[in-house]
Simulated scan of single mutants.
Amino acid sequence: MSHGLFYHYFKSKEELFTTLVQDVMKVSYSTIDSLYHAPGSPKDKIRLLTEAIMLTVYCLYLKRDSKKEKL
Rank of each mutant, 00 (worst) to 15 (best):
M1C: 15
M1Y: 14
M1I: 14
M1N: 12
S2I: 00
H3I: 04
H3Y: 11
H3Q: 11
F6W: 03
F6P: 09
F6Y: 02
F6I: 06
Y7F: 11
Y7E: 02
Y9W: 13
Y9F: 14
F10P: 02
K11D: 12
S12R: 03
S12Y: 03
K13R: 10
E15N: 04
L16M: 05
L16V: 01
L16I: 01
F17H: 07
F17G: 01
F17L: 13
F17K: 08
F17E: 11
T19Q: 04
T19G: 00
L20Y: 08
L20A: 11
L20F: 06
V21C: 05
Q22L: 04
Q22F: 02
Q22K: 13
Q22A: 09
D23I: 00
D23Y: 01
V24G: 01
V24F: 08
M25P: 00
M25L: 10
M25S: 04
M25C: 03
K26I: 14
V27G: 11
V27K: 15
V27R: 13
V27W: 07
S28W: 07
S28M: 10
Y29M: 07
Y29H: 12
Y29D: 14
S30Y: 01
T31P: 01
T31C: 09
T31H: 04
I32P: 11
I32D: 03
I32M: 15
D33A: 13
D33K: 14
D33S: 12
S34V: 04
L35C: 08
L35I: 13
Y36Q: 09
Y36N: 09
Y36R: 15
Y36P: 02
Y36A: 14
H37T: 10
H37I: 03
H37K: 08
A38Q: 10
A38S: 15
A38K: 06
A38W: 01
G40K: 03
G40R: 03
G40L: 05
G40V: 08
S41K: 06
S41A: 02
S41D: 02
P42S: 11
K43Y: 06
K43M: 05
K43V: 06
D44R: 03
D44A: 07
K45I: 07
K45D: 05
I46S: 07
R47D: 14
L48E: 10
L48F: 00
L48P: 00
L48Y: 00
T50D: 15
T50R: 07
A52L: 00
A52P: 00
A52F: 00
A52C: 04
I53P: 06
I53Y: 13
I53S: 09
M54K: 15
L55N: 14
L55F: 09
T56S: 15
T56E: 15
V57D: 08
V57K: 06
Y58A: 12
Y58T: 09
L60G: 12
L60Q: 12
L60K: 12
Y61R: 13
Y61F: 10
L62G: 04
L62M: 05
L62P: 02
R64Y: 13
D65L: 15
S66D: 11
K67T: 03
K67A: 09
K67P: 00
K68D: 05
E69Y: 04
E69G: 00
E69D: 02
E69K: 04
K70C: 03
K70S: 12
L71A: 12
L71M: 15
L71C: 08
